[in-house]
Write a protein that binds this DNA or RNA. Structure first.
Length: 626
RNA sequence: GGGCCCGUAGCUCAAUGGAUAGAGCAGCUGCCUUCUAAGCAGCGGGCUGGAGGUUCGAUUCCUCUCGGGCCCGCCA
């Protein structure tokens, strides 16, 4: 419906270009909107206003030119008017609205054509044919939490936003892979292993073993160099892990947790990382013999790192699955291997590096970064940033056209330097997009819950899901713009759960489902798309519902291209409201006239499809009964 | 000192440069002997933090300013 109107406007603009004195090479982007009241028509466009700006002419003049060249098919328009500055308002015929409904249902799953980049040369249809060439491969990286513990609420927000954006991008005709980057190397992982070992040692006795010293609440090797215990992980979950190392992983759970170490370990690292004996020990427990069985401190820490990483990742995977999110790829930093030095060499060849103070620097200021960045430290080891560049290089080498990263707000400094790196590698600036997802402040009892992984104080995603459920969690995260701080009031989320917009939307779906069930009981089937007579649909409630559904493709297109999933819940509520209003006013069953019943039944059936599709994009369950 | 994000109804938040700035919650008034009242219809509620600028038009873009949050390592 909107596409049709938009196409006609484009065609009108083309005619204007061909026949008028205006020198116009490209029709600027414009929008088709649904005005609030009916006095401004069923739909309106600002096309003439943006055109006027481009041509530097009076808006009203541009509007007149467009309207004169608009095909005023009576099958489509009852009336077209030009108003005040230069809005063009379309009043649609009943026939056009009714037939739009028929078209909507013809699409298997509602998808849309990108309308954003049309030049005025070439007709709409030609552009549409070349759509397949515009199909792009997206790679979305998000969550990417360190494998040092359970996922928290901020990760959950990223999970919801990233997943739904991926679905949106797919719905708008591209492909999108989701990727989780696991930082399984570096000092933080080492600290994790030391923290774990310390918890294990604490299980064994009250005094530190020989060669260890007290370090805060931890016991660390006497020659350990770290200055403060703050660098160690204090979370309670490490105690549980330590116990499992002592008692065996299998015993703790009915599931065979051991397969994690065999299967996940192998799939992560592509090779066996634990010997048969080690796996058996993980299974049955080390008892109090860990230090004897792996006497070499360095080897033991490496072993504990791997164990902790694999275990944490497997738990993260599990909870994300519960959150209805599955990543196509889990990419581990340790998989980069030679890639890091290769990438650095590549940058060196291109002349983007220099040496200073015994370190190797990337001249990122050449690409709009604030200052240059170290890639190789004085001690010869690569920085985190260096591995990150290698990782992004590898992403591009895998053939993705567009990389999208979601970062936490504390990483905003990485936006400029990462973009700089991608450009330095020779890729166009628009091949990478990096967005921040702002913090989530959990409110409990009206007071913020402070979250710090190392202090061990945080609400895990599991606790959140236990508390409010997957649907409510996803809805809350998606409903807000990713750029704004989110106050997630746990009490409120629970208390209001009965009058949540989520339930309002699901209720609309359930009502339709119930209706269709009842119709079937009465032997009334959903009429076929081809045969149904839609002419009985004439009152405002019916037409409003059709028009609201007609907006769906442009909502997807907008949310997808802006990378802003929060438009979906808003639209879902609007659609549900329009439906509820229609439902109250129009009876479907038990009315005289089978034709009206059929037409309305078809209407709600399509509405159910659209509602189901919106909820599906949000990863929220569409319930048949409430 | 520098950078990023946010200031919109009592509360939580929308509004891809567009018409009278909108929803939900909270408050008030009506509506269930017929398809789910977890619903509908209606009312009240705003100097969009403030001051300039850009233009046909600014919540949106630019400058300044006030308030809140986050960051600024050869940690990851």
């Amino acid at each position: 419906m909107i596409e049709t109107i938009k196409r006609l406007v484009y065609q009108a603009a083309e005619t204007v270009r061909e026949t008028s004195q205006f020198s116009l090479d490209r029709m600027p982007e414009f929008s088709i909107e649904q005005p609030r009241g009916t006095e401004h028509g069923d739909f309106s466009t600002n096309a003439a206003l943006v055109l006027a700006k481009k041509l530097k002419i009076q808006p009203f003049l541009a509007a007149s030119a467009l309207v004169e060249n608009l095909q005023k098919s009576e099958n489509i328009f009852n009336k077209i008017e030009i108003v005040k500055p230069g809005f063009i308002n379309f009043f649609l015929s009943d026939h056009f609205i009714q037939e739009s409904l028929r078209k909507m249902s013809s699409k298997k799953n509602v998808s849309v054509e990108p309308l954003s980049s049309f030049s005025i040369e070439g007709s709409f249809d030609e552009k549409q044919d070349s759509l397949s060439q515009h199909k792009k491969k997206f790679l979305l990286e998000f969550v990417s939490a360190n494998p040092t513990g359970p996922l928290n609420v901020v990760n959950a927000r990223a999970a919801a936003v990233g997943d739904t954006l991926a679905r949106l991008i797919e719905a708008s005709g591209h492909t999108a892979d989701r990727e989780f980057y696991v930082n399984d190397e570096g000092s933080q992982i080492e600290h994790l292993a030391y923290s774990l070992q310390s918890r294990y040692l604490q299980l064994l006795g009250s005094e530190p073993p020989k060669g260890y010293k007290a370090h805060g609440i931890f016991w660390v090797p006497a020659d350990w160099s770290l200055e403060t215990a703050e660098d160690l992980y204090q979370g309670e979950y490490l105690k549980g892990m330590a116990e499992q190392i002592r008692n065996g992983f299998e015993k703790n759970d009915s599931k065979d947790e051991l397969s994690i170490f065999k299967n996940l370990g192998t799939s992560i690292y592509g090779r066996k990382i634990f010997s048969f004996e080690r796996i058996a020990l993980l299974k049955n427990g080390f008892g109090d013999k860990l230090l004897e069985l792996i006497p070499n401190e360095k080897e033991r820490i490496k072993f504990l790192s791997c164990t902790a990483v694999i275990y944490n990742v497997s738990l993260q995977k599990e909870v994300l699955k519960r959150f209805r999110l599955e990543f196509q790829n889990w990419f581990f930093q340790s998989q980069l291997g030679e890639k890091v030095t290769q990438t650095i060499d590549h940058l060196k060849e291109k002349g983007h590096l220099y040496e200073q103070d015994g370190a190797v620097w990337f001249k990122s200021t050449a690409f709009h970064d604030d200052k240059d960045r170290v890639l190789i430290r004085q001690d010869g080891s690569p920085t985190y940033f260096a591995t990150d560049i290698a990782y992004h290089a590898y992403k591009k080498e895998r053939g993705y056209d567009k990389l999208i990263d979601f970062l936490g707000p504390d990483h905003h400094g990485y936006i400029a330097r990462t973009k700089a790196a991608v450009q330095a590698l020779g890729y166009p600036p628009d091949s990478i997009e990096i967005y921040l997802i702002q913090l989530v402040t959990l409110l409990s009892g009206g007071k913020p819950v402070r979250m710090s992984k190392r202090a061990g104080e945080f609400i895990t995603i599991t606790e959140l899901l236990d508390d409010v459920g997957v649907d409510a969690a996803r809805w809350y995260f998606l409903a807000r713009h990713r750029d704004t701080h989110l106050d997630f009031d746990l009490d409120l989320a629970k208390l209001q759960s009965e009058e949540n917009p989520l339930y309002y939307t699901q209720y609309a779906y359930a009502r339709i489902s119930s209706l269709i069930r009842m119709a079937e009981e009465q032997g009334i089937a959903i009429p076929s798309r081809k045969a149904v007579d839609l002419t009985p649909l004439q009152n405002e409630a019916e037409k409003s519902l059709i028009k609201k559904m007609a907006q769906y493709p442009s909502i997807i297109q907008m949310a997808s291209s802006l990378r802003e999933p929060h438009h979906l819940p808003r639209y879902a509520v609007e659609l549900a409201r329009t439906f509820h209003s229609f439902y109250t006013e129009c009876r479907i069953l038990g009315i005289p006239g089978r034709k009206l019943t059929d037409a309305r039944l078809f209407l709600v059936f399509v509405c159910k499809e659209v509602l189901g599709s919106v909820l599906g994009l949000m990863g929220i369950e569409a319930v048949e009964k409430m």
